[in-house]
Amino acid sequence: MGEVVNAFVAFAVIVFIVRWATTSKNEPSEEQAAARALQFRPKKVTPDMTETISTMFPDMPRENIHYDLLRTGSVQQTSDKIIERGFLEAPPPAYFTLYPRSATARAPAPAVPPRPTGSSTSAAKKSESLISRFQLEQRAATAEEIAAEADAGGRAAWEDTAEKREASLRERKAKMILAARQRLLAQQAEKSSG
């Protein structure tokens, strides 16, 4: 019995020494370090995956999205979790040592055209209204038609062809714009008289 215990202890010491010798020489890989710090093996996450969820849920912090994607590896599972719970867990402090904020919090700048400066562009912007954009100047000038547009939000009948549906939609838009203009003129008249 004593020989079995001695053999077992000798075997354990040899395994311990071999492990200590091999781990001290080889640095752990980045993946192993991440797995130790996060306490799970991170899945492969592309910037497109994070961007997809970020565009679907713009109020969700990108760090939380990236952390959950590292755990699940699936856009579908992460988005389902957001829909079910309404939130994602915040990553632990170890996450930020491996993935600095600048790498994950980097939101792409929206493609907004540069704003033109100068008085000519602001004057042109002010002069264009919905009435001019939809070429409703003649219809807006006639008081009878504006008064007749009170039923602007009525339901339209389903038309047979796409062209008729498009024309119906255009007409309903025009009626809504004219009705809104009528309400605005009425409000301005109340303010000036009162």
Rank of each mutant, 00 (worst) to 15 (best):
P92F: 03
V112K: 08
T46W: 02
A152K: 00
A105C: 10
F96V: 03
F57H: 05
T23C: 10
A10C: 08
Y99T: 06
E159C: 06
L69E: 02
D80N: 15
A103T: 13
E171A: 10
E63W: 00
F40N: 04
P28V: 14
A21I: 11
T50V: 12
T104S: 09
R115A: 15
L69Q: 02
R165P: 07
I53M: 01
L178G: 02
R170V: 08
R62I: 05
K164D: 15
E63S: 13
I83A: 09
K81Y: 05
E84C: 10
Y95L: 03
K25Y: 13
V18Y: 00
A103I: 08
P92L: 05
P47H: 09
I65Q: 00
A179K: 05
P100I: 05
F87C: 06
A174P: 00
L70A: 08
E128I: 08
S24P: 03
R62C: 04
I65A: 00
E89R: 06
F11G: 14
S192R: 02
A103C: 08
E128L: 10
Y95I: 03
A37T: 06
A141K: 10
S24G: 11
E190G: 00
A162L: 13
R62F: 06
E137W: 07
S24Q: 12
F134S: 04
E171V: 01
T104N: 07
A34P: 02
L185I: 09
Q32H: 06
P61L: 09
Q182N: 06
F8E: 14
Q188T: 05
D59K: 07
N6G: 09
P93D: 11
K43S: 08
S102Y: 08
K126R: 11
T52H: 05
L184N: 03
T121K: 14
E163K: 13
S129L: 03
R85Y: 13
V5E: 15
Q32V: 13
K44P: 07
A148V: 00
E89S: 11
R85Q: 15
G73I: 02
A150W: 05
S193C: 05
S168A: 13
S120F: 11
I17V: 15
K125T: 09
R115F: 10
E159Y: 02
Q32F: 09
R165G: 12
